[in-house]
Design a protein around this nucleic acid. Sequence first.
DNA 1: GCGGTCAACGGGTCAC
DNA 2: GTGACCCGTTGACCGC
Length: 184
Amino acid sequence: MPGFPSSPSLQSCDTPLIEGEGGVSAMKDLGLDINQIPSGVKEECMEEEYGGLPRKKLRLTKEQSRVLEQRFQLNHALNPKQKEGLADQLKLKPRQVEVWFQNRRARSKLKQTETECEYLKKWFGSLSEQNRKLKKEVEELRGMKVGPPHRSQQLPAATLTMCPRCQHVTTTFLDKGPAAASHH
DNA sequence: GCGGTCAACGGGTCAC
DNA sequence: GTGACCCGTTGACCGC
């Protein structure tokens, strides 16, 4: 693809573009937003726009972002009718609303992944610490060992398992059978 | 100048 | 085939 000028979608009027002297920055100086241009003027600008020039960056207004965010909190996806309604309400194109929700879902997913990553790091840290302590304990017990231990002094063999659903960690003593591992 | 943010895109997948 | 969605990427803009 690379290079927007050659991209066929530029011809599609999906992307409101403002170019030339003034542009987005100048409008911002005036407290204006690209989406608040009277539609006639906007179309005029856009018609002049599609000569293969690079696209200009659109920024949503604070109010538009606030409403979109509000709707996202209620629902992470919109049906076509909701999309149309929201686009109407915000004076945006349905495609813009759709793109905003796609990007918002992506951001949300990224944030969740980061959170999970942090959690796993912490969990790994605590398991490492636990492992270190247990190894130390084993060493100490080995050092104390003088003869065959009495059965009552023996530690039962056990395994640690994690429930994939709730991440609850359980200790299963092998001589007590699988029922001991259940916690639900 | 550089890195971060974000609107917008193209391409792929999936359900209908 | 079509529309909705996800994913990776692009490029404009902004703050430092």
